[in-house]
Design a protein around this nucleic acid. Structure first.
Lengths: 136, 136
DNA sequence: CATTAAGTTAAAGTTAACTTTAACTATAGT
DNA sequence: ACTATAGTTAAAGTTAACTTTAACTTAATG
C-alpha cells in the first residue's frame, strides 16, 4: 500500500533527498531517461528509482558520474551490440574487483580512525591529570 | 634500507601518485604543514606521508577535503584545548559509525554489480543463440 | 661556476557537478 | 475559469578541487 508505481520528479527527488534539478542534470548526462506524459512532464518508474539509487551509491564511493556511466551504462547506448555488452561486462568485472579492494581500504580507514580515537582519549586523560595536579 | 626518513615534494608526490601541486594545495587548505629547509624548500617526514595517505584514503570514500579536515583535524588547530579534543572525539565516533554503514552499502553495490554482470551475460548468450538461429 | 633540474609563491585557468534564473507551460483544486 | 503549484528548457552562475603559468630562487652536477 505504500509503494507507488510512478513518481513525478519532485516526489522522486524528495524521496532520495536530492533536488529535482540534480535529477534533470543526470538526465542531461544520459544516466537516466524517464518517460514523459502527454504534456511533456517526466514520469519515473520504480526501475528509474532503482537506477538513481545506484548512481547515488556509486557517488558515495567517490566514483565520478562518468565512471558511474561506464559501470551502469549510458541509457541510450546500444545494448544489443555484442561488443558493447562485452565491454560493459569486462568493466563490471574490473569494478567488482575494485569493490573488493575498497573493502580492504575501508578496514584501514576504520583502523586509522580507531587509532586516532584512542590517541585523542589519551590526550584528554593527560590534560585531566594536569588539571588535577595544578588546581588542587 | 628502503624507506627514507625525509622526502622532497616530488619524491613524495610520485610515491603517492599525485602531483606536487596537489600536495601544495593541501597545505594551502591546512591539511598538512611540512617543515622547511634553510632555503625554504618543503621537507616531508614519514608522519607527513602517513597523514597524506589518510587524506587520500578519505577521498576515495567520497569525503570532501573539508570533511577530511574535520576527521583528521586542521594542522594548526589547538590540540591542547579540552573542548577541541572532545569535539574531534565525537566526530571520529560519528565517522566510525559511518564506516560501518558504508560497509553495508559496499555490499549492496557489489550485489548490484553482480546482478548487472549476470544480466549482461544472459543478454550475451541470447544474442549468440539468435546468431546461431539466423546464420545457419 | 655555469647550467640544468627542481622548488617557491601568487594568481589565473580548468573541470565536474551542480544550482539558479528567466521565461514559459501544464496540472490540480476551488 | 482562475489561481496556485509544479513542471519545462536553455543558459548563466557557483563551488570544490585541482592545474597551469609566470617570474623567480635553490640545489645538484659535469
Amino acid at each position: 500500500m505504500n509503494d507507488k508505481k510512478q513518481f513525478t520528479i519532485s516526489e522522486l527527488a524528495s524521496s532520495l533527498e536530492i533536488s529535482p534539478s540534480t535529477i534533470r542534470f543526470y538526465e542531461e548526462k544520459k544516466l537516466i531517461k524517464p518517460a514523459r506524459t502527454s504534456g511533456n512532464q517526466r514520469i519515473y518508474t520504480r526501475k528509474d528509482r532503482a537506477r538513481l539509487k545506484l548512481i547515488l551509491r556509486g557517488k558515495r564511493f567517490g566514483f565520478s558520474l562518468d565512471e558511474i556511466a561506464e559501470i551502469i551504462g549510458f541509457w541510450d547506448v546500444e545494448v544489443n551490440e555484442k561488443s558493447q555488452i562485452q565491454k560493459s561486462l569486462s568493466y563490471t568485472d574490473k569494478r567488482i574487483e575494485e569493490v573488493r579492494l575498497r573493502r580492504n581500504e575501508l578496514d584501514l580507514l576504520e583502523e586509522d580512525m580507531r587509532a586516532m580515537r584512542t590517541h585523542l582519549l589519551n590526550r584528554l586523560k593527560e590534560l585531566e591529570q594536569e588539571e588535577r595536579g595544578s588546581i588542587k
